[in-house]
Simulated scan of single mutants.
Amino acid sequence: MKESPKLISDCKIIDLPVVSNPKGNLTFIEGSRHIPFDIQRVYYLYDVPGGAERGGHAHKELQQLIIALSGSFDITLDDGKEKTVIHMNRSYYGLYVCPMVWREINNFSSGSVLMVLASEKYDPDDYYHDYAEFVEIAQQKDRQ
């Protein structure tokens, strides 16, 4: 069975549940219910210096949900053919990023916290760190 190539259009903003309360709101996420994978790993970025960029890679198999827990940042998604920039600034929105999409994250506001829910445990072999190699492989998969 041939897997279809992943495209930016496969990535999307997911509205997360919000339980409103005068004492403070609560948002929760359940793997395979609110997002299309079971959660195997959670990590977060914080204290990112002004002007710094994060990301700069793609994953072969890993799926992610990226959330701005606090503050804001921009995520550039690139499938090897087109790019789009998504501004993240709400803790009840998650950006689903499918495999084979290059991501670069920048424009972090002061005090921002970015959380990632991942479909797999850390595996260094799942990464593309070289953009030219990623584009070549993405275009090969597109031709298959």
Score class of each variant (00 low, 15 high):
S91H: 11
Y93D: 09
G94T: 02
G94H: 03
L95Q: 07
L95E: 04
Y96D: 09
Y96T: 12
V97Q: 03
V97I: 15
V97F: 04
C98P: 12
P99N: 04
P99I: 00
M100C: 02
V101L: 05
W102A: 00
W102Y: 07
W102K: 03
W102R: 02
E104L: 13
E104H: 06
I105L: 14
N106I: 04
N106A: 08
N106S: 14
N107K: 15
F108R: 07
S109N: 07
S109A: 03
S110Y: 13
S110E: 14
G111Q: 14
G111L: 13
V113Y: 08
M115A: 12
V116L: 10
V116M: 09
L117I: 02
L117V: 01
L117Q: 01
A118S: 11
S119L: 03
K121Q: 15
K121A: 13
K121V: 14
Y122K: 10
Y122T: 09
D123M: 10
D123S: 12
P124K: 11
Y127C: 02
Y127H: 08
Y127S: 03
Y127V: 05
Y128C: 01
Y128D: 01
Y128M: 01
Y128G: 00
H129G: 00
H129M: 06
H129K: 12
Y131M: 11
A132K: 15
F134E: 00
F134M: 05
V135M: 04
E136F: 07
E136M: 09
E136K: 15
E136S: 11
A138I: 03
A138G: 08
